Simulated scan of single mutants.
Amino acid sequence: MAVPGNLVISARSGAHSFDPSQMNMSHVISNLSFGRKIAPRVMSDVKRLIPYLGGSHDRLNGRPFINHRDLGANVTIEHYLQIVKTEVITRGSHKLVEEYEYTAHSSLAQSLYVPVTKFHFELSPMQVLITENPKSFSHFITNVCAIIGGVFTVAGILDSILHNTIRMMKKVELGKNF
């Protein structure tokens, strides 16, 4: 079962006192990821099959979150993360690749106490499972025949409409001449 959690970064000390109005919790996230690190070769193999995979597993990396003091003192920066587990089973080697992707939303909020930086984690109960299912050559041939048959059918309908329209116009012209 997935359990939500929080990571709170703040300045606290029994030996020091802090002036909350002088604290700025601006930060840059260098790297934020979940789960095991996937080898670059394995990731390139998986991305060849599923190009969008990995696009949201490092959304916050390298992003600065800066309080320019526009909001005044005691500003807390909060990050809300929804984490989804994605599993990919490749056809050739039957490898299982596990990746945790996340969506992120960040906000600034006034605080009554010492400002902090908060990360709210929520693990999704849903999981994405991607498998490769090979199709047979006969399936390919059947699809090609269906496409060709559909093109001929539409062409036949258009030809019939055009032919009947021209024939009707000729009858109208002949009817006017008499």
Rank of each mutant, 00 (worst) to 15 (best):
I130P: 02
N6H: 07
V75I: 15
P125M: 05
I130R: 07
H163V: 10
A39C: 07
K85C: 00
V3D: 08
Y52S: 13
E101S: 12
R69A: 12
M43R: 02
M169G: 07
D58L: 07
K118L: 14
M43Q: 05
S44W: 05
T76H: 07
G55Y: 08
M43C: 03
V154F: 14
M1G: 14
K85N: 03
G150P: 06
V144N: 00
Y100S: 02
T142D: 05
V114C: 06
N24T: 01
K47G: 06
I9G: 04
N24E: 01
S17L: 06
Y102D: 01
E173S: 12
D70C: 10
E122I: 11
R63M: 14
Y102I: 01
F65E: 06
L162Q: 09
R12N: 04
N143V: 02
V75K: 01
L49A: 10
Q22T: 13
K135I: 15
M1E: 14
A104N: 04
V75D: 03
H79I: 12
R91G: 03
E99H: 00
S21L: 03
I9T: 07
L123I: 08
A155Y: 06
P64C: 04
N133K: 13
R12F: 02
D70K: 11
Y113V: 11
Y102K: 00
K176T: 10
V8M: 06
E99W: 00
K95F: 08
K37T: 12
L7H: 10
T76W: 03
Y102M: 01
S136H: 03
D19M: 03
K118S: 11
V97I: 15
N133V: 14
N143D: 09
N177D: 13
G62S: 01
N74E: 05
S17A: 04
L49I: 13
M23N: 04
L108A: 06
S33V: 14
G72A: 07
E101C: 09
N6E: 10
A104V: 08
F65H: 13
A11L: 13
L174H: 15
K47R: 15
F140M: 01
Y100P: 00
L174D: 15
I141C: 01
L174T: 12
I9A: 05
N133L: 15
S124A: 04
V114G: 04
M43L: 12
L53I: 14
R12M: 03
K95M: 11
I83M: 02
T90H: 02
E98T: 15
N31K: 12
S93P: 04
E101H: 11
F152D: 07
F121M: 00
S33Y: 09
I166F: 10
I77N: 00
Y102E: 00
V154H: 04
N133R: 12
A146H: 09
N24K: 00
I157W: 10
S111V: 03
E132S: 08
K37E: 14
S33L: 08
T165L: 05
R12Q: 06
A146D: 09
K47L: 08
I89E: 11
F152I: 15
R41F: 14
T86D: 01
